[in-house]
Write a protein that binds this DNA or RNA. Structure first.
Lengths: 204, 204
DNA sequence: AGCATTACTGACAATATTGTCAGTATATAT
DNA sequence: ATATATACTGACAATATTGTCAGTAATGCT
């Protein structure tokens, strides 16, 4: 009768990964309110005290999620920008897609829950990208032209907030506005936005 | 010794207003997690069953908040667009400011909590504004020019998602990017964005 | 004044949620 | 094989949270 009490024993890293994935899925599915230790544990197939064992507290889990989100965003953005010889339009698409699929929601939620959470990391990412973009613009500009640094910052800011807003409300907006929810619509939008940006002679 | 059991008795509308204001303040202050009946009741100076009395349930309160947010947004946007003879830049500023101060956060949160909440109302607002904008563009275009309707929709979408993203992450972005948090920075950003839009011959 | 209606409250119930703890099982080292 | 370290769990505790209910008091009506 003695149940064979098989118990899995993971490495701490594996366990943390498993729990973080479950937590991210929970947030994406049910919104911020979905962050319940019991639900996450059930989804991950572990007991809820295990979460506390690995993250100390619920707040610790939130901190870990913040770090995860920032790292994930950076990785996706790096991938988007280091892809060689693609068009402005393709780069825009990559950036927008980076925020979709839950990451945008997570960032937005974390921004309100933990406003000063990973300020420094986020700042680094942003500066890094502003620098890269500015460098490209300088390189692409005709010799002797002065490329405004502020304009580079504004451009980064516009794309960033638009991509975030898109991740959160984009689908609803397209539905409401009568734009078909199809990859083709996205493609046309990104193409239009790319034109808009380039029309001001802003090489990206 | 008998305490003078003075009890305020409001009209249902007054009570609902009081509670909704407290709930909005709670969301703006502590994020989505701040929506606790007890806290809201305390902030409003009433007992928590009163909230249930007037809204039926917590879900009922959320529905009311959704409607409020949509109406508030529409009012602010109407005001922004009906202001006579202002510049593109000023209109952009009004739209962005409409989302700030908590409304953007509320809309974002409600979008995840209640994704199909006030779809129809939101759709009406969006269509309404797309129509207005398109009308203006047609009127402002030289005779004989064909003004793309899709472009009008894209423009509305871009401004909407950018304004929403700005409300949520704008302050953090400006801080991270080294842009000073001052009205002057906003002014310059809106001016730049207005130029960007007009450069594609897009009268707004 | 008396009456009906209902906004309002305190007390209570049921459940959910975070966190603690003692003990168990498993991997690793010796 | 034995020992050590620790990932892991079930049971429990403390508190929070939504919701119910019976009763109270203020308002409007006749």
């Amino acid at each position: 009768m003695a149940e064979s009490a098989k118990r899995v024993r993971r490495t701490p890293d594996q366990a943390r990964r498993l729990i973080l994935d479950a937590a991210q899925a929970a947030i994406a599915r049910t919104g911020p309110e979905g962050l319940r230790l019991h639900d996450i544990a059930a989804a991950a197939g572990v007991s809820h005290p295990l979460i506390l064992h690995h993250f100390g507290s619920r707040a610790g889990l939130v901190r870990a999620l913040t770090r995860e989100a920032v790292v994930e965003l950076r990785d996706k953005l790096v991938a988007a920008m280091s892809e060689p010889d693609n068009t402005t339009e393709e780069q825009l698409a990559r950036v927008f897609y980076a925020f979709r699929g839950g990451l945008g929601q997570r960032l937005a939620w974390l921004a309100t829950v933990d406003p000063d959470g990973d300020e420094s990391a986020a700042a680094m990412i942003q500066r890094d990208f502003a620098d890269r973009l500015h460098g490209r613009r300088v390189a692409a500009a005709p010799p002797g032209t002065i490329v405004s640094r502020e304009e580079s910052l504004f451009l980064v800011q516009l794309i960033a907030i638009a991509a975030l807003g898109d991740a959160i409300y984009g689908a609803q907006f397209r539905r409401s506005g009568g734009l078909p929810e199809a990859p083709e619509t996205d493609r046309r939008f990104f193409a239009w936005l790319a034109t808009l940006i380039r029309a001001r002679a802003l090489p990206v």
